[in-house]
Design a protein around this nucleic acid. Structure first.
Lengths: 170, 170
DNA sequence: CTTAACATGTAATCTGTTACATGATTTC
DNA sequence: GAAATCATGTAACAGATTACATGTTAAG
């Protein structure tokens, strides 16, 4: 149930509408916590019902701007400090590696090559974000950059592994 | 819907019961694709209904042994070759990093330190698997070791990042 | 005037988690 | 004979995905 917390976290700096938040999820946050439009609107309604956020303003076209309440900020802090112990994430790509034996040698190489391409493409996308974003000295900027560095290292690791694995095939 | 394919993949080498498969999921596969008992039994029933597997034998205590059908093997191959494009996975740990700004400096350090611990612990668990498993030259052994190497590199990367990030805090 | 962007919401379906529920066999 | 392990199954609920459904305003 971390979508709640992602939304609370984004509302820390300033109020925003569901639409604004959707755009943030389509942007840099897509790499960390993808969420769909329907999910966001549904969760915002629940958060408001739980009084962790409130409608702080309404604009044209039925726009509703939400702001964090004190209870919401507390809940965010609580989650940050004693969030759930991470359990290992599902990894569809690695699952494929496990069963590579049922393919022939040529197809195996194709699968690993795709993984290399994915890693390379993902890395390029992150580098593009790194270069395009106007980083300031706000908290989100500071820690967003830290998260980005994680991504850069992760994609590099995937690339290096895919190269190593392809070499292992021979 | 990769649980299906994980089950199909495990049945490639030899038939197995739901209980056998459950044990495999609790073992090495837990790091790649965690699945619960109820999920496995439910999915096996569906796979049998779809004729991708069949009940090949029955034993004491209602034991049912499943074997892969030709259609099942085909489906596995299909998935391996043109499996779904990986979309970025959710990353609860990184989500926390994003919002580190709402905590005070001491708590931030605690969060990063926990991430370092997690990475170190996960790495130790994988090293233990590497040393304990009796690796042979079967396909599952060969490609399982490849997947394990991925995990070792991943945990090393997480450890290094956590150390770097903690240093950045100052 | 038409298109793109703004803006929100609901419903159906699927996947996964947790808990409940039951019973047989082996081992100590 | 008690406990551990083997062995399967269902139900309730939570979370996520996809599709449907609707309407406004700004810009060209």
């Amino acid at each position: 149930m971390s979508l709640r917390h992602a939304l609370l976290g984004l509302l820390v700096e300033h109020p925003a509408s569901g639409y604004d938040l959707l755009k943030l999820f389509e942007g840099s946050l897509a790499n960390v916590w993808p969420a769909s439009q329907s999910q966001i609107y549904t969760e915002l309604t629940k958060l408001a019902a739980d009084e962790l956020i409130t409608v702080s303003d309404t604009g044209p076209r039925g726009r509703k701007e939400y702001a964090l309440t004190d209870a919401g900020r507390d809940e965010l802090r609580r989650w940050l400090v004693d969030g759930p112990p991470e359990r290992p994430a599902r990894n569809p790509a690695l699952l494929r590696v496990f069963f590579l034996g049922v393919l022939d040698q040529r197809q195996r190489a194709v699968v690993l090559d795709e993984m290399l391409d994915n890693a390379t493409r993902d890395r390029a996308a992150l580098e593009q974000i790194r270069d395009a974003v106007d980083w300031d000295d706000s908290d989100l900027s500071r820690y967003g950059r830290m998260a980005l560095e994680w991504g850069l290292r992760f994609t590099a690791m995937r690339r290096d592994w895919a190269e190593w694995a392809a070499a292992q095939l021979d």
